[in-house]
């Protein structure tokens, strides 16, 4: 969150916490615009407290915050993409260990992955530990891998294909 500190005022302008994602920023921007650009119950009853000028200034600030945060998220994504590109060069097999290594290098906590992918943390841990026995049936596991890979900005299809190959191999061995 350290790199977000300079953007605190912008997050505050959109009434968001510092860890909000771009979707939330976009939504908040639309809501704020709605509140302050049209007359509503809430704005009409405020009376002398807000002049037209105040409103215009505020809308400009809201716009500025949205632009700045938009840039921030775009740059952030680019950095992530570049970083991932360097990291994944030469990796041909994506097992749990490789995924965990990449995640560590990107400084992404597992809780963040769990929160934004909505995959329970327990499953993510098993995923990274290649603990196939504790993972659910293939369709679910594949879904988890895809979501996990997307969160790390990896090529989700490639990762899933590689991971599931190992999973299937284990299943076949177990079956014998």
């Amino acid at each position: 969150m350290k790199d977000r500190a300079p953007y605190q005022a912008h997050f505050e302008m959109l009434e968001l916490p510092l860890d909000a994602n771009f979707d939330e920023v976009h939504k908040a921007w639309q809501v704020m615009k709605d509140i302050y650009s049209t007359d509503s119950l809430a704005t009409m009853s405020i009376g002398e407290e807000v002049s037209e000028e105040d409103r215009r200034l505020l809308l400009a600030k809201i716009e500025e915050a949205y632009q700045a945060l938009g840039d921030f998220f775009r740059d952030h994504q680019q950095l992530l993409d570049n970083g991932v590109h360097q990291l994944t060069e030469g990796i041909t097999e994506y097992d749990g260990k490789a995924l965990r290594t990449i995640r560590h290098l990107l400084h992404i906590p597992l809780d963040d992955v769990a929160m934004s992918t909505r995959v329970p943390r327990k499953h993510l841990e098993n995923l990274e530990a290649d603990n196939y026995a504790a993972l659910p049936v293939a369709v679910y596991t594949r879904g988890f891998v895809i979501n996990y890979a997307k969160h790390l900005a990896l090529d989700a299809d490639l990762v899933a294909k590689s991971y599931m190959e190992k999973y299937r191999k284990w299943q076949e061995e177990k079956g014998q």
Partner: peptide
């Protein structure tokens, strides 16, 4: 329901 969000926003921004 959204009126509540707006009122809250105004309290924060203008008060």
């Amino acid at each position: 329901i959204v009126t509540g969000n707006s009122v809250k926003s105004i309290c924060v921004k203008f008060f």
